[in-house]
């Protein structure tokens, strides 16, 4: 073995050691969560803690399901997340395309206003947004949760960057063929910015799934609630019953984690693409 190969090998063992320690820090909390969700309260407060419950307490999960209308919460969360994602993909790609490829008076000023919105803390908007939803009578409805998040300055900015990176000859050729901008957007441009659309879809879906304060403010009845505030209400009810709380947290997060593991390449490439264009 040459000395160069030796150093490479040593460096790679060192890398694995550091990365493995980091990975443990990332994963052990989840493993401990799963173990705790199957313990009795007594077992969970044992010192020193036992590694495995004597009899797995599946009843902890039953308690989560009897206490929370989990089925409807799951459905509401999924509906809101899909609705916001589809709407953002449509609206942001239309606007992003117009900002990147069409010329119209006031374009730069309007775009600058959109950019400025990126710095506005989302919490500042909550009270006036609540009043708008109230005035159209959509408080305590799923579409009320959905509506404000269907529009996004960030998404418009992100997709504009993708559209701006395409060669100008593309739309010129299509225009000579007599296609109008809507047509060009749909059949020429959209297929070429697929990585951008995937990135926006992943980010919007995740953000929506995890959103806490807005649904908490808009929704009052449990059957219209989404998972994140629902889980928070579980915490105020079972303050120190950690096995039930861990079971609840597990049930609320497993769907997204499952989707992530299946679509991991798309998730990771999407996040990377959003960062590179940002």
């Amino acid at each position: 073995m040459s000395s160069r190969a030796m150093t490479t090998r040593r460096a790679s063992i060192g890398s694995h050691a550091v990365l493995a320690v980091g990975a443990l820090v990332m994963v052990v909390p989840f493993i401990w969560q799963i173990i705790t969700s199957l313990k009795t309260i007594g077992e969970s407060t044992q010192v020193p803690p036992g590694l495995w419950p004597a009899h797995p307490q599946w009843s902890n999960f039953d308690q989560v399901f009897t206490d929370l209308p989990f089925g409807s919460m799951f459905l509401n969360t999924a509906l809101v997340a899909v609705g916001r994602t589809v709407a953002q993909l449509l609206f942001c790609s239309l606007a992003g395309y117009a900002f990147a490829r069409l010329r119209f008076p006031g374009r730069n000023i309007i775009f600058a206003v959109f950019l400025a919105l990126l710095m506005v803390p989302s919490y500042l908007l909550i009270i006036p947004q609540y009043q708008v939803i109230q005035s159209i009578g959509w408080l305590n409805t799923v579409q009320g949760i959905m509506l404000p998040g269907m529009f996004s300055a960030f998404g418009t900015f992100l997709l504009r960057q993708f559209f701006a990176g395409l060669p100008p000859s593309l739309d010129e050729a299509a225009r000579i063929d007599g296609a109008n901008p809507l047509r060009i957007w749909w059949s020429v441009m959209l297929p070429l910015v697929r990585p951008g659309l995937a990135a926006l879809a992943v980010l919007t879906f995740l953000w929506s799934w995890n959103d806490l304060l807005w649904p908490l403010v808009v929704i009052t009845s449990p059957d219209k609630m989404t998972l994140s505030p629902g889980l928070a209400s579980l915490q105020s009810q079972f303050t120190t019953n950690y096995p039930v709380l861990m079971a609840g947290a597990l049930v609320a997060t497993v769907p997204v984690i499952a989707v992530f593991i299946v679509l991991q390449r798309q998730f990771i490439e999407g996040v990377a693409a959003a960062g590179n264009k940002g």
Binding site: W209, N210, Q235, M246, A252
Partner: peptide, 14 residues
């Protein structure tokens, strides 16, 4: 990446 896809409510609880 696992913690990134976990909702903050669950992260805080864990």
């Amino acid at each position: 990446f696992l913690p990134v896809v976990t909702m903050p409510t669950a992260v805080a609880m864990i």
